[in-house]
Design a protein around this nucleic acid. Sequence first.
DNA 1: AAATTTAATGATAATGATTGTCATGTGCAA
DNA 2: TTGCACATGACAATCATTATCATTAAATTT
Lengths: 130, 130
Amino acid sequence: MATVVRNTRQRSAVAQLLLETDEFRSAQEIYDLLRQRGTSVGLTTVYRTLQSLAEADEVDMMRPPGGDYLYRQCTTEHHHHLVCRSCGSTVEITGPAVESWAQRIAAEHGFSDISHTLELFGTCRTCSAQ
Amino acid sequence: MATVVRNTRQRSAVAQLLLETDEFRSAQEIYDLLRQRGTSVGLTTVYRTLQSLAEADEVDMMRPPGGDYLYRQCTTEHHHHLVCRSCGSTVEITGPAVESWAQRIAAEHGFSDISHTLELFGTCRTCSAQ
DNA sequence: AAATTTAATGATAATGATTGTCATGTGCAA
DNA sequence: TTGCACATGACAATCATTATCATTAAATTT
Ligand SMILES: [Mn+2]
Ligand SMILES: [Mn+2]
Ligand SMILES: [Zn+2]
Ligand SMILES: [Zn+2]
């Protein structure tokens, strides 16, 4: 019954790469980066591992407008992101006021079992200076 | 130079269907609905028209987690949505406090040219009662 | 240290939404 | 009416993601 997650070389490699990366990266990018450092791993495995890590809330998954799914190693508490559209650098942000606002709005309209997506995009200071 | 948008039968049909629809719908769904009512239209044209309308801010476009792009005729002011995961019924919401919060947070971190995505998902009253 | 069990891997094929192509159609301004 | 530029749509292409399934290899049990 209890789902046993096996400790494989590939899973460790994906997790380790994410630990060393600050930006959101796509599955394909992560695959390429692993390859570049000589780690033998299949693309399918990268997809499955990222999915599995995301489900276990060990990595964050998001999809920017017009883009593919991106993954990043984040803190475990609920939070959102401020992402540079140009370089991908990411700042984790929390907004207690926003959280309670979302709950209140939803309740006012008779909705239950609420979830939300909230992401900020912009140009970071470094990229602004070209 | 000035982009002239031609008044075609197909474009009118898509716009009209959106006017009569309250929920977010995918391009494929809109294509099917048009077909069902006997409107001859190509799928490519539906995609292009929706894109064009979205660019002109005449319809709202969003993409729920794990889903395809969805389109809906909305009011023109900036707003967000509270969407039922079960039936798709949608409530437009505004959050002035959230808007200013987003601007402030971004500025504090040196980000400029800010945009954001914010959507609430839940189960509506009707669907809660099964 | 085997033997066993069963999840994980990965090469490959399939899927499916979206976009590109391009010959033909048509809105509309002159 | 005529002419032209944009619009249409059948069809092919793209490409991220998922499904298959034979093989590998953790973890557990003898
Ligand atoms: Mn939140
Ligand atoms: Mn907003
Ligand atoms: Zn940047
Ligand atoms: Zn509902």
